[in-house]
Design a protein around this nucleic acid. Structure first.
Length: 284
DNA sequence: AAGTCGTGGAC
DNA sequence: TGTCCAAGACT
C-alpha cells in the first residue's frame, strides 16, 4: 500500500484491511476481485492484485508465514527491492539496507552534498545505505526507519526544514552552501485529465461499484464526466471565438481510448470478460 | 531501460 | 491555475 502512496492515506485503509484479513491465508481465501474492491481509491489497483497473489504464494509456499529471507521475499508478486528489505528489517529486525525515495534524498543531501538524488540505482543505493548502517541489528532497523522519517518530515523534496534538521551541522549539502541541482531533469509526467490512466480509473470505479457484469455501453457512458466536459467547454468559449466543431469534438473521448484502457485492464487481470461485452472484477 | 500505472494533497 | 510528488514494481 505504501508504494508511491502517502502514509497518511494508507493508514486507515490498512486498519480496515487487517481487520478483515488478519493473515495471508485469510486474504488468499477470497477472490482477487474482493481485494481490488477493498483497495478502493488507493490507486495503482494492480498492487491489490499482486498483494492477493502474494498471499496465495505465501500460503502455498511458506505455510502461511511471511518469509524473512530477501530472495524469498523478492520472489513474491509485487515485492521489489524496497518492500522486501522493509519487511526483513522492520518486521524481522534483520540488518539490511532499506532504501526508499526519502532515504535516497537524505543520502544525496547529507552525504553527497547534492540537492536531489540521481535516478534510482539498485546497486549504488544499497551500497550507499549499507555503508551507513550501524552494525548492531536492532540499531540498523531503527537507522533505516530514521532515515526514511527524516526525509519524510524534515528533509522533504520541496521546502526542506533545514533549520529543524538534527544533522544540519554535518550535512554536506548545507556545508556546500545548498548548491542547486544540476543533474538530468526528471521526466515530466503526462497530464492526467483526458489520459488513459483517467479512463482506467473510471472503469475500475465502475467495476468496484457494481456487483453485476458491466457492459460496453455502460463503460462508454463513463467518460467524460459531464462537469469536466462543461468546464472544458466553458474554457474553450472564453479563449476562442467562435468554437469550432473540431474543438468541441476534441472534448469527447477518442473511442479508441476506451478500447485501449479496457484492453489494458484485461491484460493486467484487473477486469475479466464474462461474456460478449460484459466485464467484472477477477473472481479467481 | 524508459514507460506505464491512480489518486489526491500541497503549494 | 497547473505542477509536483508520494514507504515502487513491472515490462
Amino acid at each position: 500500500m505504501l508504494q508511491q502512496t502517502p502514509v497518511n492515506r494508507v493508514i486507515p485503509r490498512l486498519a480496515e484491511w487487517l481487520e478483515r484479513w488478519p493473515t495471508p491465508g485469510d486474504l488468499a481465501a477470497v477472490p482477487p476481485g474482493e481485494a481490488v474492491r477493498a483497495w478502493a481509491t488507493l490507486g495503482y489497483p494492480r498492487r491489490a492484485l499482486w498483494l492477493h497473489s502474494a498471499a496465495v504464494e505465501i500460503t502455498q509456499r511458506h505455510g502461511g508465514v511471511v518469509p524473512s529471507d530477501i530472495d524469498e521475499l523478492l520472489a513474491l508478486s509485487g515485492i521489489g527491492d524496497y518492500t522486501a528489505r522493509a519487511v526483513a528489517a522492520f518486521a524481522y529486525g534483520l540488518r539490511h539496507p532499506v532504501v526508499d525515495t526519502n532515504t535516497r534524498r537524505v543520502i544525496a543531501r547529507a552525504v553527497a552534498g547534492q540537492a536531489e538524488p540521481a535516478p534510482p540505482s539498485r546497486t549504488r543505493d544499497l551500497d550507499a545505505m549499507g555503508a551507513l548502517l550501524p552494525l548492531p541489528r536492532g540499531d540498523a532497523a531503527i537507522f533505516n526507519a530514521g532515515m526514511m522519517e527524516l526525509g519524510a518530515v524534515v528533509c522533504t523534496a520541496k521546502n526542506p526544514r533545514c533549520g529543524d534538521c538534527p544533522i544540519q551541522s554535518s550535512c554536506a549539502w548545507r556545508l556546500a552552501g545548498y548548491p542547486a541541482y544540476s543533474g538530468p531533469r526528471k521526466a515530466v509526467q503526462k497530464k492526467f485529465e483526458g489520459s488513459d490512466r483517467q479512463v482506467r480509473g473510471l472503469i475500475m470505479a465502475e467495476l468496484r461499484a457494481t456487483h453485476h457484469p458491466v457492459t460496453d455501453a455502460e463503460i462508454t457512458g463513463l467518460w467524460p464526466d459531464p462537469a469536466q466536459r462543461d468546464r472544458a467547454l466553458a474554457e474553450l468559449r472564453a479563449t476562442h471565438h467562435p468554437v469550432t466543431d473540431a474543438e468541441i469534438t476534441g472534448l469527447w473521448p477518442d473511442p479508441a481510448q476506451r478500447d485501449r484502457a479496457l484492453a489494458g485492464l484485461l491484460a493486467d487481470g484487473l477486469a475479466v470478460a464474462t461474456g460478449p461485452g460484459r466485464y467484472t472484477l477477477p473472481h479467481e
